[in-house]
């Protein structure tokens, strides 16, 4: 008897949690497909009486949504590939090779985890303006290559795998690069996936630096575009944008990562967990 009650309680609680978390996101979706007169009302209607796509048409026509989306996808993908190459190599060296200054160097790299990006942005901005690279994809991609988390995760992973395979390959006369490329990297798939997901997500979400370094719509990423054009300020609609349109913009930007997440959720959750596990 108590078993059924606790089972019922489980489902009720689960439903409450799911409903509370989903409600804001579903309300965003619901608002985006309603005509304006159904939006400005204190009557809550989750399923609109009249369905419309006018808000989506309006934002795609009036704002370079597609360009921003492309910029976001392109820079996040390029940055992720860059990080995978740099961090797997560096993490491998830190974990498996001995060289002068290894310990000190790793300490210096790790210490940067505590330096907030706000200290680096002014010099970084000046560096890129001297190079003439502000407001370019380069400015959005290159700094991601300096990330610390990826190197740390790759090092932890390489410390945890046994060395017999490398040993065998080396005995067969393979060079260090050959061993790394054909023996070590294939083993590192889980770690590489984790680093890829974390890097992609953080670059995709990145706002502070892109806000500072981009000006034109041909380079601007979605988060910056959304913030500049769709911001409702405390109930006041800014510029020409209606609430319906700003919600349509929000759905437009939220949907791709949600879809990717739902498909790849196992890897997302594993990837995030990995940052918390020692080995």
């Amino acid at each position: 008897m108590s078993r059924t009650i606790s089972r019922a309680a489980w489902y009720v609680l689960l439903a409450v949690v799911v409903a509370l978390v989903l409600a804001p996101a579903l309300w965003m979706l619901s608002t985006s497909i309603k005509p304006e007169r159904e939006i400005i009302t204190t009557q809550i209607r989750w399923i609109p009486q009249n369905f419309t796509v006018e808000h989506f048409q309006a934002i795609v026509q009036n704002y370079p949504m597609m360009q921003w989306l492309f910029n976001s996808l392109f820079t996040a993908t390029a940055a992720t590939l860059l990080v995978l190459v740099l961090d797997s190599m560096a993490g491998y060296a830190f974990a498996r090779m001995e060289f002068r200054g290894r310990g000190l160097l790793f300490m210096i790299v790790l210490s940067m985890l505590f330096v907030p990006i706000q200290i680096t942005v002014v010099p970084l901005f000046i560096l890129f303006s001297r190079l003439g690279l502000t407001d370019t994809y380069w400015a959005l991609i290159l700094p991601v290559g300096a990330n610390v988390t990826g190197v740390f995760l790759m090092r932890q992973f390489f410390l945890s795998i046994p060395g017999e395979l490398e040993e065998a390959a080396r005995v067969d006369g393979a060079s260090a690069f050959r061993v790394f490329w054909s023996v070590v990297l294939p083993l590192a798939r889980p770690a590489l996936t984790a680093v890829a997901i974390i890097t992609f997500l953080s670059t995709w979400n990145s706002f502070f630096w892109p806000l500072i370094v981009t000006r034109s719509d041909s380079v601007r990423t979605l988060p910056v575009g959304i913030a500049q054009f769709l911001s409702l300020r405390a109930g006041m609609v800014q510029g020409q944008m209606s609430i319906g349109q700003s919600m349509a913009g929000a759905v437009f930007a939220a949907l791709p990562p949600i879809i990717i997440f739902v498909i790849l959720q196992r890897y997302f959750i594993e990837g995030i967990s990995r940052t918390g596990i020692k080995g």
Binding site: V17, V21, L22, P24, A25, L201, W204, N205, F207, L222, P223, V224, I226, A227, A250, A253, A254, P257, I258, I260, F261, V262, Q265, F268, I269, I272
Partner: peptide, 11 residues
């Protein structure tokens, strides 16, 4: 519960 985290902060 994890889903909101994949939505970008500005959205």
């Amino acid at each position: 519960v994890f889903m909101p985290y994949v939505i970008m902060s500005t959205v």
